[in-house]
Design a protein around this nucleic acid. Sequence first.
DNA 1: TTGAAAGCGCTAACAC
DNA 2: GTGTTAGCGCTTTCAA
Lengths: 346, 346
Amino acid sequence: MDKKLTIKDIAQLAGVSKGTVDRVLHKRGKVSQKALDSINAVLEQADYEPNLIARNLKNNKIYSICVVLPNPESDSYWQPCIKGIEQAKKEFKAFNLSISSYYFDPEDTESFIAVNKSVLNLAPDAVLLAPLFYKEALDAVEKYTEQDILVNTFNNQLESEEIRNFVGQDLHQSGRVAAKLIHSIAEKGQIAIIHFDEKIKNAVHMQEKEKGFRNYFSQKENSDYEVTTLKLKRKNYETKLEDFLKENPKLTGIFITTSKAHQIAEIIDKTKNNTISLIGYDLLDKNISFLNKGTIDFLINQNPKQQVYLGLSFLVDHFIFGKEINPSTLLPIDIVNSENASYYME
Amino acid sequence: MDKKLTIKDIAQLAGVSKGTVDRVLHKRGKVSQKALDSINAVLEQADYEPNLIARNLKNNKIYSICVVLPNPESDSYWQPCIKGIEQAKKEFKAFNLSISSYYFDPEDTESFIAVNKSVLNLAPDAVLLAPLFYKEALDAVEKYTEQDILVNTFNNQLESEEIRNFVGQDLHQSGRVAAKLIHSIAEKGQIAIIHFDEKIKNAVHMQEKEKGFRNYFSQKENSDYEVTTLKLKRKNYETKLEDFLKENPKLTGIFITTSKAHQIAEIIDKTKNNTISLIGYDLLDKNISFLNKGTIDFLINQNPKQQVYLGLSFLVDHFIFGKEINPSTLLPIDIVNSENASYYME
DNA sequence: TTGAAAGCGCTAACAC
DNA sequence: GTGTTAGCGCTTTCAA
């Protein structure tokens, strides 16, 4: 009595065979109107749910999934992704998955193209892609799709009909979170947005954050803050920043739109200036150390680990459980200080 | 070739039958030394993983789980739990689960006892319990265990050998997070910890938070803050707080250890005093509205929704996948401001 | 257009 | 002790 209805039950109730019910459930056609009607009638009033477990038993195929992401050794922002992939592997061991990672050089478009080419040759069932290079990523997606390889993305948004699922953050809102934080902690005065990254590929990321940040302040009437933007590149950034600090003595807060906050913090530390509040991104060891020291006030966690993990779990939902997956999942924008950081680093 | 090894393969390799392999895998005995040896030899070098999906196919038993928690209508802190339970129901529909909720009155020990008694009579397979009343909860756990009903807990910790799993937060650390926040935003001066709750059952909760909060400041050398504690009960709390504010003009920050921050905020608002920073707990609508208004600066999310959801998902892991479950899971202590709140409310 | 039947991997009852 | 077998719910092939 405490059992769920099975396809067999439905077939009996409708006076047809399991096969016919199956055809109706999967809309495979070749069913007479009469059979269709009677099955639909039964389905409507019974609360039948197909058993996804049994559905999959047949398919003892191993699904191969390739994760394509920047080499964490080139940019440690990506380091946590390795853990996320490991966790997914462990968690989903029960389902026939074969997950492997492929790294490209985040500074080198050619390597992105090359890695995607070799992954294409492997002909996996799905690719989970960090589409850092917009145009090239669109090309890659197209080729994958031609080969019937499912492509999902994470971290960077890509406008494409072919992408089934994206996991990442709302960068505009992320800028607003940073602005609210600065508003909470920084004295009245001047605020600097620092874009510290030479890579053009990050431009969109940084711009969106800036927009959100400025949007917050522009909505505040008679705001006591003046917001300026400063672009820094690896070359000469130290002297440039030092000059900027001298030129702007009223500076009370800095928002760094990339994960390079630690490099700014190092310079601020040298100046012995305790009055400048710092907000940055990502839980890199170096950032955490300045967070504990007090130079950086807050970090915003973009949660790369969770991004891949979720991306992979959606693929499991799709392949194993045949679930519909949301086109876009926006992760929470975690505010991190020295006291709650450990929870987000795992 | 792209297939996982099955029990059949193992049997063939070991020169025995599936049944014998199964007996070895489940240590059900009645296997000759010879068979055992040859099977073990094969198992050791092959990377066989039993297919958990198929394993469960047989068991089309419906596992019944009762969630026992305070009535959300008495205390809206528990409101999100309903969503968590709904989400779990939806997510785990594929596995035969029957999840039902039972509410007790959080102010009434007798109702806690009564609800547990009736749940005991239902003889479910497992109970997920919010053990608000310590002593009575221990009694209940004992009775459940006698009837071979698995008990897991959430939100409140209970020291008991019989509890297999707890999901909640580290309250001491949570107090430290609040302290760091106050330290970031409040001017030098006096800080008040307000315990606003008449229920004794919350005493431990509130004390732990206070300890963590004070612990943070005591570690700071020459701290410019003085910390006082104020206990408020529903009766007279308005005049009491107003008096307190008058007596302590240097007050720059308040840490409310319960979810009642909105009641404090309302009074602060009336005084038109913008210099007091407020930190509280939990994303109740009323709290959120003061967060958006700016009266409350930060809320700490205790994530009751995630607590039940995870508690239930661990039961699925246990019953359906036979996984070992961690005795204790401490959730991240989320810092919430007006800009990232929506993500945590779902 | 339909039903019967085999089989996915695993378990457990049942012969031998 | 051990192998055989039926069957879990669903899919798919095949014959009718």
